[in-house]
Design a protein around this nucleic acid. Sequence first.
DNA 1: AAGTGGTCTAGACCACAAA
DNA 2: TTGTGGTCTAGACCACTTG
Lengths: 232, 232
Amino acid sequence: MRDGAGVPLTWQSVRAEALRRISSGEWPPGAQIPNEAEWAAELGCARTTVNRALRDLAQAGYLDRRRKGGTRVPLTPVRRATLEIAIIRQDVEARGRAYGYRLLHDAAAPAPAGIRAALRLPEGAVLRHVLALHLAAGAPYCLEDRWLNSDFAPGATFETVSANEWLVRNLAYSGGDFTFYARPADAGLAALLACPEGAALFAVDRTTFAAEAPITAVTLTYAPGYRMTTSV
Amino acid sequence: MRDGAGVPLTWQSVRAEALRRISSGEWPPGAQIPNEAEWAAELGCARTTVNRALRDLAQAGYLDRRRKGGTRVPLTPVRRATLEIAIIRQDVEARGRAYGYRLLHDAAAPAPAGIRAALRLPEGAVLRHVLALHLAAGAPYCLEDRWLNSDFAPGATFETVSANEWLVRNLAYSGGDFTFYARPADAGLAALLACPEGAALFAVDRTTFAAEAPITAVTLTYAPGYRMTTSV
DNA sequence: AAGTGGTCTAGACCACAAA
DNA sequence: TTGTGGTCTAGACCACTTG
């Protein structure tokens, strides 16, 4: 509701009003809400402004929009959180600790079945296998176990700059999957990460594709105590 | 570059062109890029369109924009991924398994120090402590250990609908933090989640605030084998 | 076939942060 | 002070999808 047309409505205020109606039950789950033109007329602002507000809410998972179908409040709400995925060096430095890096292994090898499947490669494919340790204040921080398409980055050696950093800096807007899970430390991990065998470790599997072409699959396993944080 | 003004440029195509310039090195890290008006003139489209494209790239972490300061390519790229956080019941059903739920405990109690700190509550604060088990196909799936502001949801009993589900359905647009980590199963967790003591478990700590008021702090601990996935 | 959201345009004013 | 991005408007055309 708006008096005589003094202040222009912002898209944020339209979004706030929509959220109020959703959480107050005025727009219950499953309900179709007024279309953009109606709502713009009711509020006294341009349709573009309503569009921006509702588009934002849809992106956050609070609304479901489709052409001709209109806009609805989802029956089953889904919250979306944004993870910031930085280079490991930055991650360490942001925590106020000195970063270190050691390349452990770098050689071509036949890809194991799991990696082949993740990258959709045929049997017998040969990839470049890179193993490296990231350190924080001299202590093991994260083990990087990577399989990399050999056609890609043929010149790059990962002795001083990690593959992690090299790839992030040289690959804009690539797609892929992330999987987060907990795993126990086996003997090898325990030795490299300087933790007891069987310790609970946080790990991420990541696959990367650029323009449909498989680039790399990596497992990052963090030393005990690692926590990944985000806020909404 | 656009010939005689046939097809209108879409904001996606402008974004794609900007990405090309970033990844090709035409716009190196740290460089300031042309302002919106210049770029619009060069491409032959409205400034609004350029704005939409660059705003999108900034949100994804590929550009850094500030008023008067202009738009720059960040020196240290940060990728952003979106996590979809569903109700646990939905999560289980999406994996094609039958969902089950058991309330284990629900009583008021003085909040432990860690919870008080997370919710910024004074010493001596009393909260509602809820413990519940989520099941998938009859097997333990996730343990929900929650501390809830007693002023909030006074009427709700969590016997058939979990606090997790109740809160998501009744709290629109609340803010908070998520922390993901790995933890070993202690005796209590091992018994409840039917896993060996010491097993590596995936866990999430979540705090929720609505309009600056503390609502709830919860730890979700998943049975072994759980994986959280997202794609970019 | 028709209704809805998605987007582009051209112009305008404003808020913020450098210089 | 001034340049830059942030946003609003009014109007238009289009794409998708549902009935």
